[in-house]
């Protein structure tokens, strides 16, 4: 049974200083075991300016068992699945402590955006890119932030053009890569990998 009295206190406490911390939690209807977290992308990273939605589900044993968190917003990061938003972070697994809170967990996610751990990856493709072609990684991460983590009215075509200006060399191949990655990603997962191998 989730300790709802604690969850309610956590909500109040977390949202009190959301302007400063950059993290907040909102309710999903009246089900206290299904929440939604928001973190802002850390300044000075490819995620700067983005707002990331995180799906939070509390297991019956919460807070004695870790909350289940997953990115709803697509994000390009070695420790977050580019396919489904699954997160690889120790405090959400065996290093969870009941003394931690949803807020501390969200702050840890924010810290993870600033300091990826490519040696313990969730997304092997992203991690490889991070280690081998850091500049390409930065460009892609920025582009994903721009495309998925910002509320704009721009069309896809326009977004790709903008994204390409951030890249060291906006070759047509890169453009193709970004477009392909973006469009096909919307449809099937397999094709994404084809495009990726084509580009490496």
């Amino acid at each position: 049974m989730v300790d709802f009295s604690r969850v309610q206190k956590e909500l109040v406490e977390c949202n009190r200083d959301k302007g400063i911390s950059g993290v907040s939690i909102t309710l999903h209807g009246d089900d206290l075991s299904h929440l939604s977290g928001t973190i802002t992308g850390p300044v000075g990273t490819p995620y700067e300016g983005g707002t990331f939605q995180i799906d939070i589900r509390l297991p019956d044993g919460y807070p004695f068992e870790p909350p289940k968190m997953q990115f709803l917003t697509k994000v390009w990061h070695p420790n977050i699945s580019s396919q489904n938003g699954a997160i690889c972070l120790d405090i959400l697994k065996d290093q969870w402590s009941p003394a931690l809170t949803l807020k501390t967990a969200l702050l840890s996610l924010q810290a993870l955006l600033s300091a990826p751990e490519p040696d313990d990856p969730q997304d092997a493709v992203v991690a490889q890119q991070y280690l081998r072609e850091y500049q390409t990684f930065v460009g892609t991460a920025r582009y994903w932030t721009e495309t998925f983590a910002k509320r704009t009215t721009m069309g896809t075509e326009e977004k790709v053009k903008r994204a390409c200006t951030w890249l060291p060399s906006s070759s047509s191949l890169t453009q193709f890569y970004l477009l392909g990655r973006l469009e096909i990603n919307m449809e099937t997962k397999e094709k994404t990998h084809d495009i990726l191998t084509l580009n490496y």
């Binding site: 300790d3 009295s5 604690r6 206190k9 956590e10 807070p63 009941p98 003394a99």
Partner: peptide
């Protein structure tokens, strides 16, 4: 025994 302590887990 009458004094109260705040538990950091349940926050009570």
């Amino acid at each position: 025994s009458s004094s109260m302590v705040t538990c950091d887990i349940c926050m009570d």
